[in-house]
Design a protein around this nucleic acid. Structure first.
Lengths: 353, 353
DNA sequence: TTGTATGCGTTATCAA
DNA sequence: TTGATAACGCATACAA
C-alpha cells in the first residue's frame, strides 16, 4: 500500500488533503481547533496513507518533554531484577510513573565506556540513580545533562536529593538489639562493598574504604554500636562475599562458625545472606536462636526464615523518588531520610543459650 | 554561572568559539573529524558555558533511532514486578538490551484512555507487548506506529512474531501426567482469563470466551487431555479467582476440596495458585501426593513447594524478543515456539493413595 | 476555522 | 580540517 516512497508525515497528508501542515497537526493533537468534518477527512486520508501518527521523537523535541524517567542501575539488570529490594524500589517508582502517565526507562550500566553514551542518549525528563559507587563515571554524565536527578541509597550528589534510610542508625539498632541480648562474640557478613568484590576476610581498612556509601555506613553502624558496648572491632571477624545470594551467605557463615571461639551472633548486610546463615546453622546442627542469633537487613525475604531484620520502606522510597522527579518543582538539595523499623523475629535470642 | 538566558546549544558554543555548529557537533560526536586542539578548545568552552551535551531528543530525531525498546504490560507494574514469570521475562529482555547498549522503556497501561497517549509518546525503536487481551486498544496504537513489534505469550498479531511455548501441548502434557497416574476426579483453578476477573465457578462457556489467548489455550489443553482420557469436561469443576496469589489459590482449593466426591488432582494455571493448593491441603490434613496431587504452571516458584509443573524458558523468551527487535532484520511473521518441559516433583503421585 | 512562518537542537552532505 | 546548508517531523504564535 505505502511501502515504498518517502515516509508519511504531516506534510504528506497536508499535501494530499490540500490543507496546511498545521491543520493536520491540529487534527491529531487539538481536535477542538478545527471542524469535525475536516478532521474526519484528514484522519481518513491519514489512514489511507498509513500514517503512523505524530512522530514521538519530533513531538518530544518540540514539546521539550520526554515522557519518561530514567533509572540507572549499577548492577546488571539481570541481577537487579532478581533482588527483592531492587524490585521493591522498582515497584515504587512504577507507581509514581503510572500515576503521571509516563514511562520508566531502565538503563543498564555495565562495561567500561558505554556509560557516557547510555546516559547521553537517554530520552528522559529526569534521572534516578540507584546504588552507584562514589565516582562512577555515569554520575558525571547525569549531572551534565542538567535534568532533575535524585539518588536512592547512594551516592550523595552535592545539591541533589538522596533518598534512603539512616543506615548508620538502622545498623546500630540492629547491632544493639543483639548486644542487648547479651551477645559479645559477633560475626559479620558483608557484600557489595566494592564494585570488584572479593571473597575472604575484610580488615577494617577494607571496610572503611569501599566506594558504596550505604554499605560502608551500614558496617560503620555495626561497628559504632559494638564499640559503644565496649567491643574491640578489630577482633570482630568480617567476611566478605562477592554475590548477594543465600548460598554465599551459607559459605561465609561456615567460615565464621568454624572460628574459635565461635560467634554467637551473626550480623549481615542483606536478608539473603542471613538466610544463608540459617542454612549453615542447620548444616552444623546449631539451633537458632539458642546457639546462634542471626540478623538480616532490608526485610525483603526475611519473613520466610523468621529473620530479625531492618525493614526499609522500599516501595515508598521508589515512589518518593519518582514523584519528586515528576513534580516539576525544584528538588530538595539534601537527604530525604525515610523511616526504617527493626523487626524482631525468631532468629535472635539471648546469648548463652 | 549560566542559569538565566537562553539555553546553551551547539550554536551557543559555536558562536562563542567562532566556529560553526557542525564543528562543535563533531567535537562531541566525531572526535576524529577535527584537530585535537580545536576540540579541546570547544570542550573547554562548553564546560564553561555549562553545556549539557548534545540533546538526546534532537539527536534521536536526527539519527532516527531512539536507543530504547518499549515493553507494554497490561497489569499494573506493581503487580507485574511482583510476578516471577514477568520478572524472568524482564531479565531476559534486559540481557538483550544490555548487549545492544540500549534502554528498556517500561510502559504502564492502565485506565481507560491513557493508552493511546502512552503508546504514541513512547520514544522507542520497537515494541514488545506482553500478555495483552485480544482487542486491547493499545495494540492498535502499537501497530499504527509501524515499528518492529513482537508479542510475548499473547496475543497473536497477524503479521508479527509471537513468542511463547505451545500452551496447548504443555497443558496437555501436564494433564496427561496426572491422568496417567490414574486420576479421574480433577479440579482446576484458573485466573487471568478475563481482564475483569471474577471469583467463582467458571462454566465451559466462560472458559472458552476469555480474551487472553494463552490462558484460554492452557485451559483448552487441560480439557483436550481430559476428554482424550474419556472424562466429561462439563463435570470437571473449574474455579476462577481474581488475583494470581498463593492466598487465592488456597481459597479456591478449599472450594474445590469441599466437593463430593473430592478431586484427587488439582490443575492450576500458575505456580502461585498451586502453592496455595498445598496450603489448603495442609489446612485439611490432606497428604500430598497420597491424598491429593497438585500441578502448577511456569516453574517460577515451584521448586519451593516441590511442585510438579511446566517449566517455561522465561528468560530465553524475553531475550529472544529483545534480540529480534534489535536485530534490524525483518521480523518473522509467525509464532516462535519455545521449548517447555514438564517437571515432575513430589506434588503428584498415583491416584487412590 | 485555517494558513504562514518559525524554531526545537541536532547531524549529514557536500563544498571549500 | 572546517563551514554552509538542508533536512529530521512537529507544534505554536500570529495573521488571515
Amino acid at each position: 500500500m505505502s511501502g515504498r516512497g518517502k515516509r508519511v508525515t504531516l506534510q504528506t497528508i497536508a499535501d494530499r488533503v490540500g490543507v496546511s501542515r498545521a491543520t493536520v497537526s491540529y487534527a491529531f493533537s487539538r481536535p477542538d481547533q478545527l471542524s469535525e468534518k475536516l478532521r474526519a477527512e484528514i484522519l481518513k486520508v491519514a489512514g489511507e496513507l498509513g500514517y503512523a501518527g505524530p512522530d514521538a521523537t519530533a513531538r518530544s523535541l518540540r514539546l521539550r518533554r520526554a515522557g519518561a524517567l530514567g533509572l540507572l542501575f549499577t548492577e546488571t539488570l539481570n541481577y537487579a531484577f532478581g533482588d527483592p529490594y531492587s524490585i521493591g524500589l522498582l515497584q515504587g517508582m512504577a507507581a509514581a510513573v503510572e500515576d503521571a502517565g509516563v514511562g520508566l526507562l531502565i538503563l543498564p550500566l555495565l562495561t567500561g565506556d558505554g556509560h557516557a553514551e547510555t546516559v547521553r542518549g537517554a530520552v528522559v525528563d529526569g534521572f534516578c540513580v540507584y546504588s552507584l559507587p562514589d565516582g562512577h563515571p555515569a554520575l558525571e554524565e547525569v549531572l551534565r545533562r542538567g535534568l532533575p536527578a535524585v539518588a536512592v541509597d547512594e551516592p550523595y550528589l552535592p545539591g541533589y536529593p538522596l533518598i534512603g534510610i539512616d543506615e548508620m542508625a538502622a545498623a546500630g539498632d540492629a547491632a544493639r538489639h543483639v548486644l542487648g541480648l547479651g551477645h559479645r562474640r559477633l560475626g559479620v557478613i558483608i557484600t557489595g562493598l566494592y564494585h570488584q568484590a572479593r571473597t575472604g576476610w575484610a580488615d577494617v581498612e577494607r571496610q572503611e574504604r569501599g566506594p558504596f556509601q550505604a554499605r560502608r555506613t551500614r558496617i560503620a553502624g555495626y561497628r559504632a554500636a559494638a564499640e559503644g558496648a565496649g567491643i574491640d572491632w578489630a577482633g570482630v571477624p568480617v567476611y566478605e562475599v562477592v554475590r548477594n545470594t543465600r548460598e554465599s551467605g551459607r559459605e561465609a557463615a561456615h567460615e565464621l562458625l568454624r572460628r574459635e571461639p565461635r560467634p554467637t551472633a551473626v550480623l549481615t548486610v542483606t536478608d539473603r545472606l542471613a538466610l544463608g546463615v540459617l542454612d549453615a546453622a542447620a548444616d552444623l546442627g546449631l539451633r537458632v536462636p539458642e546457639d546462634l542469633s542471626v540478623v538480616g537487613f532490608s526485610d525483603s525475604e526475611a519473613a520466610q526464615g523468621g529473620l530479625t531484620t531492618i525493614r526499609q520502606p522500599k516501595e515508598e522510597i521508589g515512589k518518593t523518588a519518582g514523584r519528586l522527579l515528576l513534580s516539576g518543582r525544584p528538588l530538595p538539595e539534601e537527604r530525604l531520610v525515610m523511616p526504617y523499623e527493626l523487626v524482631v523475629r525468631a532468629s535472635t535470642g539471648p546469648a548463652g543459650g
